[in-house]
Design a protein around this nucleic acid. Structure first.
Lengths: 120, 120
DNA sequence: GCATAATGCATTGCTATGCAAGGTAAATTT
DNA sequence: AAATTTACCTTGCATAGCAATGCATTATGC
């Protein structure tokens, strides 16, 4: 059997448990195209401090999964930047994640609270 | 420097990103002592399906970190069970996590919503 | 009586993630 | 000229999740 690859697509919880950060970055790109160095800073401002050594490989992964595209661009005089744009597939994946995220938070909340009489 | 060990204690976000499940299991034990096989089932019922191959090593980790203690016990005629009890340290860690969890969910929610006009 | 499932524990080996550390190059500041 | 900032990236390590597998005991089914 081909667990690894299939499970990734089948069980959203695996994605959630592993890749909350992945979709946070995707969500940032969804706001409008952005580049690695900026994303690192915005994540920090938003309270989700993450080093470059995590973000850059993550961006490469997103692109490999075709959730984003990228294009080098030279803005003014600074260093060239690799801008990332979200794709249709990326938007779909993000939308799906938002739903799974809500469910996941709900589930964890219930477990954390003790869930004695808490229903629905 | 001793990054690994220290960072684990210093930066709660690392724990959260990696170990949401860890604290879910701890929370289940906090409800009342439990054992691996039961925890696997309860996690499934609660919507957080997780295989034994994940749970048993996790329990060993919790004990190694002194967040739980364990004691073998024979209930009736069945197989002996390794019951886990939460410790003071475990309760403290759980309480801390509950706070970090709220913050984390808040942060992720803001990033996911895009912060355009949606204010909770 | 014998096979299958369920209960209950655990480990091995693989894949992937997070990340500190380090490296490159250009522009800006001091 | 040196240091900082902007901007990219890779290497190597520790660890998490988990399928697969194994062991032992107790039902359940035939």
């Amino acid at each position: 059997m081909l667990y690894n690859a299939l499970m990734e697509l089948t069980n959203p919880l695996i994605q959630i448990k592993k890749g909350a950060l992945e979709f946070c970055v995707l969500a940032l790109i969804a706001r409008g195209e952005s580049y690695g160095y900026e994303i690192v800073k915005v994540l920090d401002e938003e309270g989700l401090t993450t080093p470059e050594g995590t973000v850059y490989p993550l961006l490469a992964r997103l692109q490999k999964e075709a959730l984003v595209t990228s294009s080098w661009r030279q803005m003014g005089e600074g260093n060239p930047r690799k801008y990332y744009q979200i794709t249709r597939k990326g938007e779909a994946a993000l939308a799906l994640f938002r739903e799974h995220w809500k469910e996941f938070v709900n589930t964890v909340d219930l477990i954390l609270e003790g869930g004695t009489q808490n229903d629905g």
